[in-house]
Design a protein around this nucleic acid. Structure first.
Length: 282
DNA sequence: TTCCAGGGATATA
DNA sequence: TATATCCATGGA
């Protein structure tokens, strides 16, 4: 993909492989908001503002190199699409959400946020995370950073239930403490199956949340998060429902190292198609 | 009022 | 290993 970095941002040339609406609304991150057709994206203690230009998009940020990696700008999504389009459904999904990028999010932030996401809805997830940032995160001027693990671990579970986290309150504290005692760089060096086993040992992390962390927070494409939407996709387009574990195995066998990308195209397509979710500025 | 949300922990067999 | 039940909360 053609882009150029400047000291205050990234200029992206118009392409079918980059669309912020697709990328931000496919359920992979929770710290973003839209205003007047522009998007603000927050990651750790950093901020990016995406705006449309004549020839594409401009991502305004103090840290261009961080967001080049974050938006996965050096990966060839055209090649990935060619790999995953193997039937009519995938063709429609890739055509519909062709501007999706799988974000390289911060690992620890992804762990905490996807623990909160379990059996929850996206507006509420965003609200809980925002309250955490406002109350525990560093004040960056016009936004708040995601709290450090030390800050998160320093509060009792009741602190998070008061923010609406419900029964996930103790999971947040337990896992933050466990992550503090973990060498995260060492974790990120593990092969996917070993890292998955580690993740499953954290409170509040089951198969689906572990896959989301692997895909969005550890850059692993060889996973396939199965949630309620993927159950619908499988039942409607692929075959008889035989359980999430079997659905996951089916798609992993089919798409291999590109499974995570296939999953995101399918998720976005199905969710926008069949929910009251209103897609703006496509 | 009931159902659902990007499910997981726990008990049980 | 596989299945059943319970779990806070808020919007539809």
């Amino acid at each position: 993909m053609n882009y150029t970095t400047e000291k205050n941002g990234i200029q992206i040339e118009q392409t079918a492989d980059f669309n912020p609406t697709h990328t931000l609304n496919c359920g992979q991150l929770f710290r973003y908001f839209e205003n007047n057709g522009n998007y603000t994206v927050l990651s750790k203690d950093r901020k990016a503002e995406i705006g449309k230009t004549d020839g594409g998009y401009f991502i305004a940020t103090d840290d261009p190199s961080y967001f080049v990696r974050y938006f996965d700008l050096d990966r060839d999504y055209g090649a990935i699409k060619a790999k995953v389009v193997d039937n009519d459904v995938m063709a429609r999904a890739v055509d519909f959400g062709g501007g999706i990028r799988i974000l390289r999010q911060d690992f620890a932030e992804a762990v905490i946020e996807f623990i909160i996401s379990a059996n929850n809805n996206i507006p509420r997830i965003k609200g809980i995370i925002n309250k955490m940032c406002v109350s525990l995160g560093e004040n960056m001027g016009d936004y708040y950073a995601f709290p450090t693990l030390t800050k998160i671990a320093s509060k009792p579970a009741s602190f998070y239930s008061e923010m609406g986290a419900g029964y996930r309150d103790s999971y947040i504290v337990d896992t933050a403490k466990k992550l503090l005692d973990t060498d995260i760089d060492e974790l990120l060096g593990l092969p996917t199956d070993e890292l998955q086993r580690k993740l499953l040992s954290f409170k509040g992390v089951g198969p689906k949340v572990a896959d989301c962390i692997l895909l969005f927070g550890a850059g692993r494409g060889d996973v396939f998060p199965v949630d309620t939407w993927m159950e619908k996709v499988y039942a409607d387009y692929y075959g008889e429902l035989t359980g999430n574990k079997e659905i996951r195995r089916f798609f992993l066998n089919r798409y291999g190292e590109y499974s995570g990308y296939a999953q995101q195209y399918l998720f976005y397509y199905k969710r926008v198609l069949e929910s009251n979710f209103k897609d703006k500025n496509v």
